[in-house]
Computed example of a mutant assay.
Amino acid sequence: MTDTWVALEAGADPVRRRGALRRAYESFTTAGHVEHPVRSVVADSWKRSARAHVSPEGSACVDLTDDALAAYRDGHPLARVMPLFRELMSAYALDGEHLVAVCDAHGRLLWVEGHAAARRAAGGMNFVPGARWAESVAGTNAPGTAIAVDRPVQVFAAEHFQRPVHAWTCAAAPVHDPGTGRLLGAVDITGGDRLAHPHSLAFVGAVARAAESQLALLAPPPGAGCSQLSALGRDEALLLTAGRKIPLSRRHSEILTLLAHRPEGVTGDELLVELYEDESVPPVTLRAELFRLRGLLGPELLRSRPYRLAGTVDTDFDTVARLLASGAVTSAMNAYAGPLLPGSQAPAVVRIRRRLADQLRAALVARGDPGLLADWAYSPWGEEDLPVWRAL
Rank of each mutant, 00 (worst) to 15 (best):
S40T: 07
D278Y: 12
D193K: 03
P83E: 09
F291R: 15
H176E: 02
D74P: 01
G327C: 02
H261N: 03
V6G: 00
P14V: 01
V100Q: 05
A121P: 04
V350D: 10
V281S: 14
H76S: 08
R182Y: 09
L290F: 13
L341C: 06
D369H: 07
L372P: 00
A374Q: 02
E289W: 15
D13N: 13
G298L: 13
L323G: 01
V365E: 04
H160R: 09
A121V: 13
V149W: 10
Y276F: 15
V165F: 15
T330Y: 03
A363V: 01
V329N: 06
G123A: 15
E384Y: 07
I352R: 04
A172H: 09
H176R: 15
P247G: 05
I147F: 14
A10L: 05
W381C: 00
G179H: 10
S213I: 09
V38A: 01
A211L: 04
L183T: 08
L256C: 06
V329H: 12
L239A: 10
T145V: 10
L340C: 06
G298H: 11
D74C: 03
L215D: 05
T330N: 00
A206Y: 09
S45A: 15
A12W: 03
T2P: 11
W46F: 09
P380E: 02
H76I: 03
L356E: 06
A70V: 06
E270W: 13
E9Q: 11
G130S: 06
V34Y: 05
A211I: 06
V112E: 12
L324E: 04
S49M: 03
D369I: 00
E57L: 12
V137N: 08
R51G: 06
W46T: 01
P143I: 14
A60C: 13
S90Y: 15
A219F: 03
T330C: 07
L21Y: 11
A7L: 05
V54M: 07
G343Q: 08
A363G: 02
L110Y: 13
A52L: 07
T145K: 11
L360Y: 08
A224L: 04
W111T: 06
R51E: 15
